[in-house]
Design a protein around this nucleic acid. Structure first.
Length: 418
RNA sequence: GUGGCUAUAGCUCAGCAGGCAGAGCACCAGAUUGUGGAUCUGGGUGUCGCGGGUUCAAAUCCCGCUAGCCACCCCA
């Protein structure tokens, strides 16, 4: 056999090993629990969607333009792995007739998303999101609700030191006029801008605001702020959202430079960061209102608001803060055949599985080694089979913490282990 | 996509003025006339990330690739 490189995981993806699963489960279970507490129901949508669904909602964003996993054409359909969940959930809302039910539809989803980014800590090509969407509701109450829900989740998994940033980016009525003001402001400065920013100026001027290029920072201070140029409806909505958050006792920082990578967002946008970080790639959850999304997908215009939480990042913070979930032993009972007793050991295991999780040590090694293995596994009991005792359909039952050991018939095992 | 740092045992890492591959933990075996945890003894389990180059000689120097981390870009 020629030696070859072993095949490793694809770049930017990772395994969640058994030892890490309890923490993941906790993050997911808290997510599901808090969503249900707020009256949200779970939905699962496909990981593959038609490319058009993804493109229609954000053609000039990086997520779609550069980071999309496109699949080979199958038949007549161009497919892609979903880079985010909201577009698919909104599609399912209409296709599944949820728009015919009580409004809004309160939905949550936990699942993998895919982006062909350059991998880094906290940034993976397959990553997991906890998504919450309230579709069919225009009231600012829903904006505040999803923010409170996101905060509750982060608190419930033990993250207390958080920063919530908040902004409003207007809607189709007032944003175009604002964007013209913004362009008018930046055009004379164009030669001072970074090459990327010069492109943004005409194509996606809102993005100029969250530019981190050092030489552009001074310009931002004097740039027109969108919250000062909202139409009456957007301004009222914006005021209501802040009022509701104030009443809920939720602290937030107004960030006039907070914008969104995806185009369908309107009005409220927000992001949660861990408190200590100055943070570039450490947003824990972010979301906002997307009243323009349904129409962009070709469905009847329908308002909606939601957020996406980064499960990977939350789990990493949980682990970093020293949180550990005590792993349960893989098996409560270990059956150790001493000698050629595989058939008998399997039968005894079968009997014990009626009441306990059971593992069998089939390896041909010393009894001592088998006992060590059982101990390391964390087994509470060991059922020891030796040829002469097994012949009588009996076994030694050893209680590991006390070391007490008694002989008894196989049929008695379930009662003793229960 | 851009730039920087890194890659040695299962894990954390040392070794790098070029000269036989190391430590701790983990693992395996024994002390234990076959019954775990504690202790002691013994064992290195390795294509030094991959591929080239320089050299009598490369883990060590040079180049390329791959992967990870960090900063950008962007985002969860």
């Amino acid at each position: 056999m020629p030696r070859t490189e072993p095949i490793k995981a694809a770049r930017g993806v990772r395994d969640i090993l058994p030892a890490a699963i309890p923490l993941w489960r906790q993050a997911e279970q808290e997510a599901a629990a808090v969503a249900k507490r707020f009256g949200y129901e779970e939905i699962a949508t496909p990981v593959i969607e038609q490319v058009e669904l993804v493109e229609r909602v954000g053609e000039q964003t990086d997520t779609v333009a550069k980071e999309l996993y496109r699949l080979d054409k199958r038949g007549s359909q161009n497919l892609a792995l979903r880079p985010e969940a909201t577009a698919g959930v909104v599609r399912a809302y209409f296709e599944g007739g949820l728009n015919q039910g009580p409004q809004p539809s309160r939905l949550y989803l936990i699942g993998p998303m895919f982006r062909h980014d350059k991998p880094q800590k906290g940034r993976y090509r397959q990553f997991f999101q906890f998504n919450v969407e309230a579709i069919g509701g225009a009231s600012p109450g829903f904006d505040a609700e999803v923010i409170e829900l996101a905060l509750s989740w982060l608190n419930d998994v033990g993250l207390q030191d958080l920063r919530l940033e908040l902004n409003s980016i207007g809607d189709g009525k007032c944003r175009p006029a604002y964007l013209e003001r913004l362009k008018d402001y930046y055009r004379p400065l164009k030669s001072h801008l970074h090459a990327d920013s010069q492109l943004r100026l005409e194509r996606n001027p809102l993005r100029l605001l969250d530019s981190k290029v050092p030489q552009e920072q001074p310009f931002k201070a004097d740039a027109p702020k969108i919250t000062e140029h909202l139409c009456d409806e957007c301004a009222a909505h914006w005021a209501d959202v802040r009022r509701l958050l104030d009443a809920a006792g939720i602290a937030y920082q107004l960030n006039p430079y907070l914008v969104r990578g995806l185009d369908y967002y309107t009005r409220t946008v927000f992001e949660f960061y861990p408190g200590g970080a100055s943070g570039q790639q450490d947003a824990l959850a972010s979301g906002g209102r997307y009243d323009g999304l349904a129409a962009a997908e070709g469905w009847p215009s329908t308002p909606g608001v939601g957020f996406a939480g980064g499960v990977d990042r939350v789990v990493e913070l949980m682990a970093a803060s020293g949180q550990e979930v005590i792993a349960k032993p893989a098996a409560d009972v270990v059956v150790i055949p001493d000698g050629e007793l595989s058939i008998e050991a399997a039968e005894v295991a079968r009997i014990c599985r009626a009441v306990r999780s059971v593992a069998v040590d089939y390896e041909t090694r010393s009894l001592r080694a088998k006992m060590k293995w059982a101990n390391k596994l964390g087994a509470k009991w060991v059922v020891l089979l030796t040829p002469d005792v097994a012949k009588r359909r009996a076994a030694q039952l050893r209680e590991m913490t006390s070391g007490e050991q008694t002989e008894l018939d196989w049929v008695e095992l379930p009662t003793r282990l229960a």
